[in-house]
Nucleic acid binder design. Structure first.
Lengths: 194, 194, 194, 194
DNA sequence: CATGAATGAGTATTCATTCAT
DNA sequence: TATGAATGAATACTCATTCAT
């Protein structure tokens, strides 16, 4: 009878509902129902609806990174690492269907949810960037990449990931991870100039 | 005493408040107050709060494009055009302070606002993409750019613009338009490979 | 160009709308529109919406009586007079379609419209009753009717008129005035006992 | 501590307030206050204010009939049954004070509350009529009543009941049930002709 | 721990009324 | 006079949160 811990149950239910409906349109009742528990129980584990969102966000980002790191273990070359990130991102998006795209953007909407949450977000944002930055710097050190502005290039790369989410979500595009990753890296590495 | 038309007054007030607080956290009262009019007056010009948001969004996007096109008139080369777009985007973001970033992402949150609004959004998204696509295709035809996947490259470029907004907003980065545009285009054109 | 006076125009428009929708569901805008005038104009002739209703009610009752009296002029016998009242009532109901039934009952709803209006209503109610009472008393004096309780009998008769309105309205009954009047009077005069 | 069920509590509070003020002038807050519960609780048991009214109406009519039928059990003769109905009606009116009269008429005002409610009303109206019709038909079969138009006579009788309510309410008349029932039946049975 | 009935603060929207033209 | 744009008071309904069981 190895039941999942209640808190985890709520977190996962919350992810599904929040991602589908956004923060304000999600009702606590619905999270409880989807988690298969009583509404009151949520307040045994979380201070408020905002708190549920907050913790869920952290859990989700962690999960994202965990899956990402796993994929990175196999690669050693900066170029391949970047390619792997793109591929992973797309696969991740597919896994969580179109939910992720919504969630990722949702976040900025809730800046009004308090400074603390903004801090959490900024941190996870920086963390993601740093992860990429390191790879790019590594590439430069190894002499594989030119001496470009690392921060900018990271932002650059990072923006592309968001752009893919956005496009997949808004345009219901169907994307082949390997193919796209290949092309993205090609452009990133070689540029578009003839 | 050439007063601004009431409807325009409301649209501008709405932009400021929506951008600052997001859709759900914005109270109609506050829009009215910021516009310096009575609450009821808003309903003389708009069907509902959602309608205000909808029309404001369209107005905002139009404004964005108008300023963009203006900047593009001066340039003839695809490369310079792209650079101009980046620069314009940054200047625009600065103009509307950090509001824009929020607004741009806010949109996806309100997918629940009805299919009609989603259509509007998708259209403006496609329109923006097409504008860029054309430039890239032009570059390819002129033999300036390689024969890369145009759609993907557009998404690529488009994502970068979003990434810049995001970074400016989240990290409160101060950015020099010319400098960033220069570097972005450099990376885009030449890639990062040594 | 003998235009109807504005006030009269409003009164008639008000009657149609109030009768169709009831007091609260009637919008001042609609009265104005139906009267073919501007909304503000109503307030040139009436203090408030309630005032429009009030005056309209008086006008309507007067009209009812006027038509009734006209019909009574032809008859001299109490029995025939009562029959005439029934017939008139039915014809009147038909004239104003099903509107009247609604209006008649609507009144009691608006007791909260102030003591003054209640007085008006009670008065018109008493006036109607008195008109009938006199006829019944006349019948008793002439030895045509038994010495029954006049007030009660009036209420009795009066109730029947209301019952007919109610039935016509609720059940969409189609009624032949002459036929019904004949039968009503037959029962009233002779009772139902064998 | 046998508390009354919440739903019943609300129904009774609603009856009092609706009857006193009419539908539109009744505020949901007031019903809650009178029921001694929180405003939100009403929406746990009813879909809307209109729903409260609707269910309250049904409950009220049922109650009316229950009390009526009870009284009818004792009587076997059509004449006595009718007399009993009149008496019961008056007693009922006294019990619910002057509220009933208002309620009875209120109904027609809310025809705009949707077709479903109209159906409910028409049904309860027909039900009431049928109950009386049966008695009259019984009287005719037993040879106690003349062969009059049964529907009309029912309407006739029915109207009287309404007339009594109306008079009691508008004129604040004090009425002795036995006495009035006696006289009403006398007139109904024997007519007013000498 | 778990629950869900009860709650009431919070808000979009309507519409009678006013008043500058 | 006549108008209708502007107004804001008034109100049904939602839903996060509490707490008795």
């Amino acid at each position: 009878m190895a039941e999942k811990p209640k808190k985890q149950l709520i977190l996962e239910a919350a992810f599904e509902v929040f991602a589908q409906k956004g923060f304000h349109s999600t009702k606590v009742d619905e999270i409880a129902e989807r988690a298969g528990i009583g509404k009151g129980t949520i307040y045994e584990y979380f201070k408020s609806k905002a708190d549920v969102f907050h913790e869920m966000y952290i859990w989700y980002v962690d999960k994202y990174f965990a899956e990402l790191e796993e994929g990175l273990l196999d690669e050693s070359e900066p170029t391949l690492k970047l390619k792997r990130i793109v591929k992973n991102h797309i696969i991740f998006l597919n896994n969580v269907k179109n939910l992720a795209g919504k969630l990722l953007n949702e976040s900025s909407t809730h800046m009004d949810m308090g400074a603390e949450f903004k801090k959490t977000m900024v941190n996870s944002y920086k963390e993601k960037m740093d992860r990429i930055k390191v790879i790019i710097e590594e590439g430069i050190q190894k002499g594989v990449f030119r001496e470009i502005d690392v921060t900018l290039c990271t932002m650059f790369f990072f923006g592309i990931l968001g752009g893919i989410s956005h496009a997949m979500f808004l345009l219901d595009m169907d994307i082949n991870p390997d193919d796209v990753a290949e092309k993205v890296i090609d452009i990133l590495l070689n540029g578009i100039k003839k």
